[in-house]
């Protein structure tokens, strides 16, 4: 579904990603793991067109999307749920969700999706007229995921959905991701620092270290691998 071939990304003169190649197959949950500054967020931003790679190419359904702008990429079905939620704090919950659907025109379908998101997160329905900035951390993460779902994604990219949340809420959110993947067939690319939780729900995983991919493999194997356990799982 998504294929990245040998991309290199720079911030000014600083090389942030060195020769990264990865694949996401349809219907999978793929995780991208690594510590701070490894380049996980940079990878996602490059896929969604917010950053442009200096070399290499990105393919979605066998079409090159490297040079499209972010709105065209969202329209193709690649939607990013950005790190730290990045909601629109002075807009209401409902307005935040509707902004998610900004690239779509069919009003009836948007309305159906809105009800579906309310079905997934009943708390958002109760608070639809409240300003997004007044929600709790967990509710904000739900809203961020709901907003991304409103764009009608085929590939949902989540940037550290567990950031700053209580373990119980992290569990809820990961459970939801599994459900979205199993029931709706949504393909998910997950960026996480919480390697343990991410590997448990993933099919495949890549590990990034200071801009290079150092390890990849089936998530089950990586969970057992001694190297991963030492470095990321703290065992």
């Amino acid at each position: 579904m998504l294929e990245i071939k040998n991309i290199e990304v720079y911030y000014g003169y600083v090389k942030a990603l060195k020769d990264i190649s990865l694949r996401v197959e349809e219907g999978q949950i793929v995780s991208l793991l690594g510590s701070n500054g490894a380049g996980k967020t940079t990878t996602l931003k490059t896929i969604s067109g917010l950053l442009k790679p200096k070399s290499g190419s990105i393919l979605f359904h066998e079409k090159i999307i490297t040079h499209l702008d972010s709105s065209a990429i969202v329209r193709m079905g690649i939607v990013q749920c950005p790190e730290g939620r990045q909601l629109f704090p002075d807009l209401s919950v409902k307005e935040n969700l509707l902004v998610g659907a900004i690239t779509r025109k069919n009003r009836k379908q948007i309305n159906d999706d809105l009800n579906q998101v309310y079905g997934l997160f009943p708390i958002l329905r109760d608070r639809k007229n409240q300003l997004a900035g007044t929600l709790s951390g967990g509710e904000q993460q739900m809203l961020a995921i709901g907003r991304a779902l409103m764009a009608g994604p085929k590939l949902l990219m989540l940037d550290e959905p567990s950031l700053g949340l209580a373990p119980k809420i992290v569990e809820q959110i990961f459970e939801l991701l599994v459900n979205l993947n199993k029931e709706k067939g949504l393909t998910i690319l997950l960026v996480e620092q919480n390697a343990n939780a991410a590997l448990r729900i993933s099919d495949y995983a890549y590990i990034l270290e200071v801009g290079t991919l150092t390890l990849e493999g089936d998530a089950k194997d990586l969970l057992k691998s001694e190297l991963v356990q030492q470095k990321y799982l703290g065992a």
């Binding site: 709105s71 939607v79 950005p82 909601l87 509707l98 764009a151």
Partner: peptide, 19 residues
Amino acid sequence: RALKAIREDRVAAASMGIN
């Protein structure tokens, strides 16, 4: 709504596909 989204957070607005 798109205008207000841009005011609130440019990066998030761009990642929602707003030009």
